[in-house]
Amino acid sequence: MTKIFKYTWAILKGMGITLKYFFIKPVTVQYPKEKIKISPRWRGTLKQLKNEKGEEACDGCRICEKICPVNCISMEVYKDEKKNRRFTSSYTVNFGRCMFCGLCVEACPKKCLVHTTDFEFCTYERESLILTKDKILR
């Protein structure tokens, strides 16, 4: 008998705590309608920046390609004799493989490869996870 009393009392005490939280604002976020604030350091999809002249800043040094632990970056490089620098003719990132570790961004010597704060990139096909240069250079 005392046992039943003890159990009930414990449950009531627990309920008391729950009740306390019943009256304060909920902490959950109603996701598609509301969104939480993403930190600016968020490691989302990759993006290449342009330089101040409006042309691509990346000079195809291939450092990001080499450092990536899962080999998801691939590029083709050519040399522009007139401008006397290298350019990439293609730059592809396979986000199906990417684990968003940020090593490529950290290693880029031109600081032209950056993360976006974008985290919603679900698709129906795997192919659309492979982003080519026109989508990455923004």
């Binding site: 350091r41 490691r43 570790c101 940020g102």
Partner: peptide, 24 residues
């Protein structure tokens, strides 16, 4: 964690010789 290293689960924050970014 997110504010420091930009990820919520797979932090990849430590580096050989230190950490990858200073605290915000």
């Amino acid at each position: 964690y997110e504010s420091v290293c930009g990820a919520r689960l797979t932090y990849n924050y430590f580096r050989i010789g230190g950490v990858s970014a200073d605290l915000p």
